[in-house]
């Protein structure tokens, strides 16, 4: 039985005499159960498979975070793509110094979302962006329940920091400590933001049900 080499590895080994010398790629040495940080270290060493697995680990939480912060699915996909472009571009400069790679990646995502929102409405504060009157809304595409739609509308009434905290904790599934690293705050601050956000949502929804 012959082990199957990655096509890129095989092709790379044929190019050593060519003008563009392509280094042969060794099979990934990363363990199957490697953590995100271990994958990141391997990726900075040029391990393509580690990059793919890193992507697999991060794409869903990053997309969910971005989609929770933006309205339209196309925007969420565009920004998610931009985030990974930036991650790949910045990987060579990444040095693991004990801080989680995921927090580093989410900082890139957060900055990309902020950039996108500023481009969208440069004169309005974050969180005050009007609902688009046309186009495909995330809600229309995916959310079925009226309550959830109301909740999404209520989220847009929160302060930008509260929205950010909710998106990181409930969209991306980060812990308070991880979200704190992304936002550059203390974990207690994140807990407070989340608590007040949920409290505000509860009040808003209760008021809407009364009316």
């Amino acid at each position: 039985m012959r082990d199957r080499l990655p096509l890129s590895t095989t092709l790379g080994s044929t190019l050593v005499d060519g003008a563009l010398r392509a280094p042969a790629r060794a099979p990934s040495a990363v363990r199957p159960d490697a953590s995100v940080d271990e994958l990141a270290v391997a990726a900075t060493g040029g391990d393509v498979e580690a990059v793919g697995r890193l992507y697999d680990a991060l794409v869903d939480p990053i997309y969910r975070y971005v989609a929770m912060r933006l309205r339209r699915r196309e925007d969420a996909e565009d920004v998610t793509q931009l985030v990974f472009e930036r991650i790949v571009a910045a990987l060579p400069r990444y040095h693991h110094n004990g801080k989680p790679f995921a927090a580093w990646a989410f900082r890139i995502a957060r900055n990309a979302v902020i950039d996108h929102q500023r481009r969208l409405r440069p004169t309005e504060p974050l969180g005050a962006i009007a609902e688009p009157s046309d186009g495909v809304l995330l809600e229309a595409l995916s959310l079925r329940d009226e309550e959830i739609r109301e909740l999404r509308a209520a989220i847009r009434g929160l302060t930008p920091d509260q929205q950010e905290a909710l998106a990181l904790r409930y969209g991306a599934g980060l812990s308070a400590e991880e979200a704190a690293r992304v936002m550059g705050r203390q974990a207690g601050t994140i807990r407070g933001l989340t608590f007040r956000a949920i409290e505000a949502l509860r009040r808003t929804l209760a008021r809407e049900q009364r009316t």
């Binding site: 794409v59 869903d60 997309y63 969910r64 989609a67 929770m68 969420a76 996909e77 998610t80 995330l138 995916s142 959310l143 329940d145 309550e147 959830i148 909740l151 999404r152 909710l166 409930y170 969209g171 599934g173 949920i198 409290e199 949502l201 509860r202 929804l205 209760a206 049900q209």
Partner: peptide, 20 residues
Amino acid sequence: ILSDEAIERYLAAIRAELAP
């Protein structure tokens, strides 16, 4: 009167719906 737990359940539902 929605409870905080209900809000969290709704947020979890939103998260589940937001798959790429």
